[in-house]
Every structure is written in structure tokens, then in C-alpha cells.
């Protein structure tokens, strides 16, 4: 099962590993189709063409394999969907909990994923 977004989806733990190991800059939004998550998917769909050097994906929070995001030490203490995690060369450089504005997301991308 995947999210009903126009983003590419991470559907398994194997997918996740391959993605973060083979790409320098990766952002994964792990959520549901809820009010706090939808604006984040929408914001990323709008801005992704401005960041061709970043791989943008989403992942269904309730899928068993989403433990690869849910159980990250960087997401400890998170109590709001979506969990949005930014990876550089396979390592977490930033993680946020709950809704983020387009501006907040762009700030993180600009700070961590310089083209």
C-alpha cells in the first residue's frame, strides 16, 4: 500500500537502503493522508523541480517497513506526523516532526543540500 501522492514512494526497507546508499541527497516524508501531512507532500511536489540534485520520496507511516524511519534515533521524541528525514550520503542530517511550511523545508534543503 502506498500514499495517494504524486511523489515517488519508498515501499520497502530494501528500497529505502538502496535509495539512501545510491544518492547523495535524499528527503523522505513518512506520513499518512492526514491534514498535517498533505501540505508537506504538496509543498514538495511544487518545489522538487527546483532541487534536481535531491531525491524526494514519501513512505506510508503505517507500513511495517516504515520502521526504518519510525525507529531512527533522530526521530526519537517525535509525536506528530509526518516524520520528515533528510539524508546526505546515507546519514541523517536533519529530521522534523509534524507540518512544515514550504519556507521551512526550503531552508533545510538550502542549508544541507548545497548544489
Amino acid at each position: 500500500m502506498t500514499l495517494q501522492t504524486n511523489l515517488e514512494h519508498v515501499v520497502s526497507a530494501a528500497d529505502f537502503e538502496k535509495l539512501i546508499q545510491n544518492n547523495e541527497n535524499v528527503m523522505i516524508i513518512c506520513g499518512r493522508m492526514g491534514p498535517m501531512c498533505v501540505p508537506v507532500y504538496d509543498a514538495v511536489e511544487e518545489m522538487k523541480h527546483e532541487y534536481p540534485h535531491v531525491q524526494f520520496r514519501d513512505m506510508l507511516f503505517d507500513s511495517p517497513d516504515a520502521r526504518v524511519i519510525r525507529e531512527l534515533p533522530d526521530c526519537k521524541g517525535f509525536m506528530g506526523l509526518p516524520f520528515t528525514v533528510y539524508f546526505k550520503n546515507g546519514k541523517v542530517v536533519k529530521a522534523t516532526s509534524s507540518i512544515q511550511t514550504s519556507e521551512q523545508i526550503k531552508n533545510i534543503l538550502d542549508q544541507n543540500f548545497v548544489d
Binding site: 491534514p35 509525536m79 506528530g80 516532526s97
Partner: peptide, 8 residues
């Protein structure tokens, strides 16, 4: 926000 405070 997102670490104990929620609006949803």
C-alpha cells in the same frame, strides 16, 4: 510542536 504539542 510535533514533540508533544499538536493541533490535529
Amino acid at each position: 510542536a510535533g514533540r508533544g504539542i499538536s493541533y490535529c
